[in-house]
Nucleic acid binder design. Structure first.
Lengths: 175, 175
DNA sequence: CGGCCCATGTAAATAGTTACATGATTAA
DNA sequence: TTAATCATGTAACTATTTACATGGGCCG
């Protein structure tokens, strides 16, 4: 929908700060573009350049636009993400289910280490947000970053609750 | 770590209410058990039964316990989940990035429909939590459900912010 | 007798990651 | 001259999903 554009640019312009680290991988990006082309949803035009590698510019077709509209309007498969993958795709949370198999001190340590990671992540999302605001990115996109930020701030609070629960258990139950 | 146990029971006892719908699929469960067995992390013993299908009971071995401890203590790959997959695995959020390609009324409608789904999900997680409390499940596990609940409640608020942002844009900018 | 629950799996397909391969320009 | 950035891609592997396949017991 932001055509014409080429693979490398799509990759580097979209949420750059966060995707730099966990970026769309080439092994998925280029085959995906090829597949969209085969399906007639985008068309390729090569931009020949002397001062750098050639660029394969893709433009969306009418049927591409239709397919996009169908995707955007559909509600299919939206539940998994926010209800379920949220836990399933979170290795730390999965480990938390087995926290009782660690000594309380070890468990507490694990939480502290993780807490620092979350704080680091908050700072990075904040920087990404500022950067996006400066670049006058669509407000909807910035709101997505807000979502991520609120998630992480909630997570910090939750980690503290978890820590408190462990300490409490340690002091009372003792095994 | 809760051995001996068999596939079908693992599947149905673990977070049953939520997993009923998005359950571990058989195509991954049984091959995974086989793989763990091949690696010597678990051992199989068949429980022959007359009043129903036989059960393949698996018990964890010493090396299984060691591997489990290594996994639990490691911090590897924990970042992706909470920083990145959180957005990437959420089809609704991805669509929100393209909300400007919908008419404001359509966008608002999409948000309202999603909001109802989130409310439904909250009720189901609450029921799961009560059920787990009655069954005296480990408090760590219940805290995971709390995490999910807090995520969803945060999401409701965020959806309202998103809705407000769209209404504001519609009234001022027009286009 | 039909359908659901129990219980085991396999096969085929799709999705996703990692590593490899190439080659030009530009900045330290 | 070495490393980074720009730009394209493929190959091999791993993960995940979906659909299929089987068969007994139990309930209405």
């Amino acid at each position: 929908m932001n055509s014409p554009d080429y693979g490398y640019n799509i990759k580097s312009s979209f949420f750059s700060r966060i995707l730099d680290e966990f970026g769309i991988n080439d092994g998925q990006l280029y085959p995906a573009l090829k597949k969209l082309e085969t399906r007639g949803l985008i068309v390729k035009k090569i931009e020949y350049r002397d001062d750098g590698p050639n660029r394969h510019l893709f433009s969306i077709t009418d049927s591409g636009r239709e397919e996009f509209a169908r995707w955007l309007e559909s509600h299919e498969g939206e539940e998994r993400g926010f209800r379920y993958e949220l836990i399933r795709r979170d290795p730390f949370l999965l480990k938390c289910m087995y926290l009782k198999y660690l000594k309380p001190a070890q468990a507490g340590n694990k939480i502290i280490i993780h807490r620092r990671e979350v704080e680091k992540s908050i700072k990075e999302y904040q920087a990404a947000k500022e950067d996006m605001e400066n670049r006058k990115v669509d407000s909807e996109r910035i709101l997505i970053v807000d979502y991520a930020l609120q998630c992480q701030e909630m997570r910090l609070k939750w980690l503290d609750e978890l820590k408190a629960a462990i300490v409490k258990k340690e002091n009372s139950g003792e095994n």
